[in-house]
Amino acid sequence: MPDLGAYVVDLRQDRIGRVMGHEGPYVQLRPPGGGLEWDCPPESLRPAGHRDMLRARVTELNRESRLP
């Protein structure tokens, strides 16, 4: 199981998420910069690489720049 706060990639959707918790057999993920959480089985996850992390950070910064 990935650590809380770690970035991972949901291989089913090629979607980056931050680990928010573990619920039963699933890992709860939230998109970079916030949004609705989704559940993913741990076998469908891989650790985020450098390119994934950069993409996630840009998404977070873009979201923050739009906040009042």
Rank of each mutant, 00 (worst) to 15 (best):
Val19Met: 08
Val19Asn: 11
Val19Phe: 09
Met20Gln: 15
Gly21Cys: 04
His22Met: 11
His22Ile: 13
His22Cys: 11
Glu23Gly: 12
Glu23His: 15
Gly24Tyr: 03
Gly24Gln: 04
Gly24Glu: 11
Gly24Asp: 03
Pro25Arg: 11
Pro25Glu: 12
Pro25Thr: 04
Tyr26Gln: 06
Tyr26His: 07
Tyr26Ala: 05
Tyr26Arg: 06
Gln28Val: 15
Gln28Asp: 13
Gln28Lys: 13
Gln28Glu: 13
Arg30Trp: 06
Pro31Gly: 07
Pro31Thr: 10
Pro32Phe: 09
Pro32Thr: 12
Pro32Gln: 13
Gly33Ala: 13
Gly33Met: 07
Gly33Trp: 12
Gly34Pro: 04
Gly35Ile: 02
Gly35Gln: 06
Gly35Asp: 01
Gly35Val: 00
Gly35Pro: 00
Gly35Met: 03
Glu37Arg: 10
Glu37Thr: 09
Trp38Ala: 03
Trp38Thr: 00
Trp38Lys: 10
Asp39Cys: 00
Asp39Asn: 09
Asp39Glu: 09
Asp39Val: 05
Cys40Tyr: 01
Cys40Leu: 04
Pro41Ile: 01
Pro42Glu: 07
Glu43His: 09
Glu43Leu: 06
Ser44Glu: 12
Leu45Val: 02
Leu45Gln: 01
Arg46Thr: 10
Arg46Asn: 08
Pro47Glu: 12
Ala48Met: 07
Ala48Trp: 02
Gly49Asp: 15
Gly49Met: 10
Gly49Arg: 07
Gly49Phe: 13
Gly49Gln: 08
His50Lys: 14
His50Asp: 14
His50Asn: 14
Arg51Ala: 14
Arg51Leu: 09
Arg51Cys: 10
Arg51Gly: 08
Asp52Ile: 09
Asp52Phe: 05
Met53Phe: 11
Leu54Gly: 03
Arg55Ala: 11
Arg55Phe: 03
Arg55Cys: 08
Arg55His: 03
Ala56Gly: 05
Ala56Arg: 01
Ala56Asn: 00
Arg57Met: 09
Arg57Pro: 02
Val58Pro: 03
Val58Thr: 04
Val58Trp: 03
Thr59Ala: 03
Glu60Cys: 04
Glu60Ser: 02
Leu61Ile: 10
Leu61Arg: 12
Leu61Phe: 13
Glu64Pro: 13
Glu64Met: 14
Ser65Ala: 15
Arg66Ala: 11
Leu67Val: 15
Leu67Arg: 15
Pro68Met: 15
Pro68Gln: 11
